[in-house]
Design a protein around this nucleic acid. Sequence first.
DNA 1: TGTACATCAGTGAACGCGCGTTCACTGATGTAC
DNA 2: TGTACATCAGTGAACGCGCGTTCACTGATGTAC
Lengths: 222, 222
Amino acid sequence: MAELKAEARRQLAAEGAAALSVRAVARQLGMVSSAVYRYVRSRDELLTLLIIDAYDAVGEVAEQALHTARRRSPAARWAAVGRAIRDWAIANPHEYALIYGSPVPGYAAPVDTIAPATRPTQVLVAIVADAQSAGSVTSHDVRPVDDRDLPAGLRSDLTAIATELGADLPPSLLARTAIAWSQMFGLISFELFGQTRNAIHHHEQLFDVAMASMTAYIGLHA
Amino acid sequence: MAELKAEARRQLAAEGAAALSVRAVARQLGMVSSAVYRYVRSRDELLTLLIIDAYDAVGEVAEQALHTARRRSPAARWAAVGRAIRDWAIANPHEYALIYGSPVPGYAAPVDTIAPATRPTQVLVAIVADAQSAGSVTSHDVRPVDDRDLPAGLRSDLTAIATELGADLPPSLLARTAIAWSQMFGLISFELFGQTRNAIHHHEQLFDVAMASMTAYIGLHA
DNA sequence: TGTACATCAGTGAACGCGCGTTCACTGATGTAC
DNA sequence: TGTACATCAGTGAACGCGCGTTCACTGATGTAC
């Protein structure tokens, strides 16, 4: 089973999710294709395993980075986690694409993927929540400044998310966090998917500037 | 030829890029698969046509939105273009995924796609450049405030981009634009690719808040 | 200690499928003299 | 006005391929009495 997953991961890394096939995995493992069905109900289930693994891997990396940076400032912690996620994405582009890229056609993510999917997000939210409860989030003039800047529907979404994550975060702060969070993944995706090819060459520098910028935008102190 | 592209687009919309096949297109058109080769050298060329069309479509939509909002404030123009891009993405999710999602495995984008790919970006940059040359960009305290906040490598990338686009933009301002730009596409991708499923339900409201937030961040006045 | 039996990993053949691409061809339409 | 010829859109068969999945099976390993 471990070998199967390892080989599937290898093929994912080499060719991408679309090219992942039960037969190729079996071939590489020196067995007949039907033998794989002893371990896995279908190709989709194999894909699900890989998706969960990928979320766990990036979640692990994020948690590890936060732990290492735990004594530093909130802004430094956010940047450290961001950099760790980016490094992981660059090292594992197909795994990144599998979970943060376009959905695999015809594949519907089962419930088992939900929990691992939230791991990296939880790490980022925890940084902001900690800073907030330590009273160190700076107020500034870039909206949403406070909860009155948010329409009711969005405000209730954000309140529900905060409750779900057990974080005591005002919706406006969580909104800024979500915006910074999507900025981060947007930038990684642009870099990885080639959108900035021929234009940006110093991606790491841009990423660092973006992290500094976005932490200031959220209100995390340096 | 027009019918061929139309049918290919229809299949792309229905099933996604991975499922797009020469044979299926031919079948739908009531002809034999080999007939398609009279119009198109290979499946990859067909894909390239669709990619160019998609970039042109979203570019067109962005340009149109800017034109309609041309008398409004820079911030309102940015938001209008953003909303237009998001609307287009929601209406054409597979086309969006084709150009802004994970790259199609085994497909290498040819040179012909470069020019159309820059169209939406150019619209956004133009808004900022206009505001800048009108002297209406607000300075603020979120880095990068000025060019000294940028490392040399990134600064030269950004200078080159400004020159390329014929825009007179200081690197720091272009950096903020790029960050806001990737925020916007990150948010659209998260929404479209299901990353915020079960958490955010009022995507449009979040998007509008993000646009307001990011224009303030760039320094565009409302 | 030895035997009968169950479990389990993996085999091999087959199913029906769709794919991209090549190739020699047909028959209708248009053009030149 | 009529005929010979070229162009062109599309045909039909074939190539070789890889895929997911099912099914009855074999043979080794482990377990119970």
